[in-house]
Design a protein around this nucleic acid. Structure first.
Length: 566
DNA sequence: GAAGATCGCGCG
DNA sequence: AAAGCGCGCGATCTTC
């Protein structure tokens, strides 16, 4: 059953043959067949209110997200030409989730469209999308991708709803230990003030030198003859000058203060939870982005503050060497896949496996070599081992090279399940045609070449990063379903804590970063959770690559604090 | 003074 | 302009 949620003027909703208020939608869904696939324009628009009412949706179909994929996929033919005027399915952004900065979440926000934009018809859009998918030679892959993307949208809203458990006092202790006590507004923390003195002394600079001003600092560094012409860490590190050590420490602490200091804590943590909005498909490759609080860049130093509720714990899992494994599978490279299985066939460290195959002498070289192959590296040790990798694993290396050449020609590339890359923009094409003008000089040719290579590195990486994101989506979707099936913990304290319905007493996802997940679970269910997460990885591998003998081993940790997970 | 560009660094 | 991908964010600096 695939009911469509159709918004109507005046704020009511037509769904499953009934006309109801938005407030009644939760009870309609709660009493419907749990296998229903609820189809709507935007998961962010409808799902928060359902969760607030305690109603979880098992399956959904997000027309906006699906549209964005289908419209560009090389595996599908969209009826309108590529250069047709973008409609509201292309341009309307997802509804913002209520952030902690804003007013408290309303139980049933009126999810009306902006007044001047007409409401697009979800029934017609669904029919169109179904026809486009059915007409594709790769309909199965596309259906999987659209289902996974939609399941991801559900998981993203659920993670926002549950929040990441966060102890503000632990965070504050971390800050106080490294920076000194919280200073008054506009003042520098004690430790930074101390380092600022050292920096000025080492440069022979006056007390007016402000190390927070890159321009002034660079000028002072030039005057002191340090020998750096930028303030980048990698450049400072190689210099021998007394300013280097205090400056590097200053920059590191300053970063902690500005990115994840007390102001961050005030803005983003409320009632023991960090809530960040995930932006599903927010990255061109299909990876998720985030908005608010920098959730995908949580520095290791503050992860101590991520602490499970009493009686609960975290199961943390990440996919080991996900991208090279995905590459091996997409390329049909049995030799590289075997390197990832190890001698006992049970998921070795893939880089060790590459060493064992005799291709390169050390794990470090295997790693930088594979990264170079997937990113388009040409220099240094990465560039040096590439020929040996190409000889040992010709299929995988040829696969990424072909993706790079397509990009250099200005063509589209496509992931395993059918997400296609964008075309290069006007500047790129101008640079290319510039090289063929009659008056083109060496620099025009060099510029065109440089642009072409750069786009080639993008498309080379796109196929790998994008397919890895598809594996991760399938993994996440499977975990989400399996966790729900585990049911409610019988431990009394599990249901008493701050975890909101519908997840009270139940293991649930609280964090996701590209190839890593964190499940917050009643402690008695941790082993069962780990087993399901493991099974989900195997399921994701089968969904994408069928019987191809590639393995996706996970590294696991069960810990009450995220900081103890690695 | 708002808006946009640039730098630099955190994460994968 | 760090060899080599993808992001978000804050601070400073620049422009209108």
């Amino acid at each position: 059953m695939q009911p469509v949620v159709v918004p109507e003027p005046g704020g009511s909703v037509r769904v499953a043959g009934r006309r109801v208020t938005v407030g009644e939608l939760a009870s309609v869904i709660a009493s419907a067949d749990p296998a229903s696939r609820w189809t709507w324009d935007d998961t962010n628009r409808w799902y928060p209110a359902l969760l607030a009412a305690g109603v979880r949706v098992e399956r959904a179909y997000d027309l906006r997200l699906a549209h964005r994929i289908l419209r560009r996929s090389a595996l599908a033919t969209w009826p309108e030409p590529d250069d047709a005027e973008p409609g509201s399915w292309d341009t309307r952004p997802p509804a913002p989730l209520t952030s902690v900065r804003d007013e408290p979440a309303m139980l049933f926000p009126a999810p009306g469209p902006t007044d001047d934009v007409p409401e697009p018809d979800p029934v017609a859009e669904l029919a169109l999308q179904d026809a486009v998918v059915a007409g594709s030679a790769a309909a199965g892959r596309l259906r999987l991708l659209l289902a996974a993307e939609s399941a991801g949208a559900l998981a993203a809203v659920e993670m926002f709803h549950a929040g990441l458990p966060w102890l503000a006092d632990v965070h504050d202790a971390v800050l106080t230990e490294t920076l000194g006590p919280r200073p008054r507004l506009g003042e520098r923390p004690a430790r930074l003030e101390e380092l600022a003195h050292h920096i000025r002394a080492a440069l022979g600079a006056p007390a007016t030198l402000n190390p927070d001003s890159p321009r002034d600092l660079l000028r002072a560094i030039e005057r002191a003859g340090v020998g750096a012409r930028s303030l980048r860490k990698w450049e400072l590190e190689r210099l021998d000058h007394p300013v280097v050590e205090p400056l590097l420490e200053y920059k590191s602490l300053y970063r902690l203060l500005t990115a994840n200091g007390w102001a961050w804590l005030d803005a983003w943590v409320r009632d023991g939870r960090f809530r960040s909005e995930y932006v599903v498909g927010g990255v061109v490759t299909g990876r998720w982005a985030s908005s608010g609080g920098g959730a995908l860049q949580l520095p290791k130093s503050v992860r101590r503050a991520v602490v499970a509720d009493p009686g609960w714990t975290f199961v943390v899992a990440d996919a080991a060497q996900l991208e090279p494994r995905v590459l091996a599978a997409m390329a049909g490279d049995e030799v590289m896949a075997a390197a990832g299985r190890g001698p006992d066939g049970r998921g070795a460290d893939m880089y060790e496996g590459i060493v064992a195959s005799g291709a390169v002498p050390t794990r470090e070289l295997a790693k930088v070599g594979m990264l170079g192959a997937m990113y388009g590296g040409t220099t240094g040790s990465s560039g040096q081992v590439l020929p040996r990798l190409a000889k040992a694993f010709p299929r995988s290396l040829a696969f990424v090279d072909e993706a790079a050449r397509a990009g250099e020609r200005g063509e589209i590339v496509t992931t395993h399940l059918g997400r296609s890359s964008p075309l290069p923009g006007a500047t790129w094409h101008e640079a290319q045609s510039g090289a063929y003008q009659d008056d083109a000089g060496d620099d025009d040719v060099a510029k065109a070449r440089s642009y072409a290579r750069s786009w080639g590195r993008f498309t080379r990486n796109f196929v790998v990063q994008g397919t890895a994101a598809e594996w991760a989506l399938c993994w996440l979707a499977s975990i989400r379903r399996r966790l729900w099936a585990l049911g409610v913990s019988s431990a009394p304290e599990a249901s008493a804590g701050p975890v909101p319905v519908p997840f009270a007493g139940r293991p649930h996802l609280v964090f996701f970063v590209h190839d890593e997940i964190v499940v917050h679970t009643p402690a008695d269910l941790a082993d069962a959770v780990a087993a399901e997460v493991q099974a989900a990885a195997a399921e994701a591998g089968r969904l994408l690559f069928g019987d191809f003998p590639v393995q996706f081993p996970l590294s696991f940790a069960v810990a009450a604090s995220y900081a103890d997970a690695k």
